[in-house]
Simulated scan of single mutants.
Amino acid sequence: MTFLIRLFVILIFLYSYPNIISAKEIKYNHNSKTISEIKKEVDFTLLTPTNIPEDWTLDTKTSPWIMLHYMDSKDTKLMVGIHQRLGFHLFKDDFPYAQQVDINGNKGYFQGWEESGEVDKNGDTITGGLLNWVQNGTYVEMNSSRLPKERMLEIARSMK
């Protein structure tokens, strides 16, 4: 039953997922709330990556999850989406096709996209996938169709 509930949540997320996405100065776009503003509104630890290119911009959303969408320098392509909410325990059975990975000492699960290696309608090669883990009581779901698994893991491991 738990698996079905989590699968349902993931399917809702994928259905409603918008097609839009720092250690140094963050360049916000689309009148986004700042990280510090969001931290004041949530009852869990908001994690942010420190290993993000300086020229990427950030678009934040606060409903239904906290969503950090890092966009390319032209603000046209979603590079990586990082969605967060209050954590819950993850079970390997919830990710039967995923590879278990380590994210800062936490069990994570990476599942590549089924279309990986194919070319999308814009001429870009699909890569990456979906990465899930819980860190400091926060459930994190990262996705990218532009970054390879290794780069996604580097970003995930830089989250504090």
Rank of each mutant, 00 (worst) to 15 (best):
residue 74 K to E: 13
residue 61 K to N: 06
residue 64 P to C: 02
residue 99 Q to V: 13
residue 125 T to R: 14
residue 30 H to L: 09
residue 73 S to G: 13
residue 70 Y to E: 04
residue 127 T to N: 12
residue 115 E to N: 12
residue 159 M to H: 01
residue 89 H to Q: 14
residue 42 V to I: 07
residue 81 G to R: 02
residue 47 L to M: 08
residue 6 R to D: 10
residue 19 N to D: 09
residue 5 I to D: 14
residue 103 I to G: 01
residue 35 I to C: 06
residue 65 W to P: 00
residue 59 D to Q: 14
residue 113 W to Q: 05
residue 93 D to W: 14
residue 114 E to K: 15
residue 18 P to N: 00
residue 55 D to Y: 15
residue 30 H to P: 04
residue 2 T to K: 15
residue 83 H to F: 14
residue 1 M to P: 09
residue 147 L to P: 11
residue 26 I to E: 04
residue 24 K to I: 04
residue 104 N to P: 01
residue 34 T to F: 02
residue 92 K to C: 14
residue 118 E to Y: 13
residue 136 N to E: 02
residue 1 M to L: 14
residue 47 L to D: 00
residue 82 I to P: 05
residue 32 S to F: 03
residue 139 Y to E: 04
residue 63 S to P: 00
residue 141 E to G: 10
residue 140 V to I: 14
residue 4 L to N: 11
residue 99 Q to A: 11
residue 132 N to P: 08
residue 34 T to R: 08
residue 152 M to I: 07
residue 29 N to R: 12
residue 28 Y to S: 01
residue 66 I to Y: 06
residue 75 D to S: 15
residue 149 K to S: 08
residue 27 K to H: 11
residue 115 E to G: 08
residue 100 Q to T: 12
residue 69 H to D: 09
residue 149 K to W: 09
residue 92 K to P: 13
residue 33 K to D: 00
residue 61 K to R: 11
residue 15 Y to E: 02
residue 73 S to V: 13
residue 49 P to Q: 02
residue 34 T to C: 08
residue 20 I to Y: 08
residue 33 K to H: 06
residue 12 I to T: 02
residue 62 T to P: 00
residue 81 G to P: 04
residue 39 K to N: 03
residue 36 S to V: 13
residue 71 M to R: 11
residue 49 P to V: 06
residue 47 L to N: 03
residue 148 P to R: 04
residue 39 K to R: 12
residue 17 Y to L: 07
residue 32 S to I: 02
residue 93 D to G: 14
residue 123 G to E: 03
residue 150 E to V: 05
residue 135 Q to S: 01
residue 105 G to P: 07
residue 140 V to D: 02
residue 6 R to E: 08
residue 129 G to E: 11
residue 64 P to A: 00
residue 142 M to S: 10
residue 133 W to H: 11
residue 71 M to P: 01
residue 151 R to A: 03
residue 8 F to P: 02
residue 112 G to T: 05
residue 23 A to T: 12
residue 44 F to M: 00
residue 3 F to D: 10
residue 122 N to I: 00
residue 126 I to T: 04
residue 146 R to G: 09
residue 23 A to Y: 06
residue 2 T to C: 15
residue 68 L to Q: 08
residue 67 M to H: 05
residue 49 P to C: 08
residue 87 G to V: 01
residue 159 M to Y: 04
residue 15 Y to N: 04
residue 106 N to I: 00
residue 156 A to S: 05
residue 81 G to N: 05
residue 61 K to T: 03
residue 85 R to W: 12
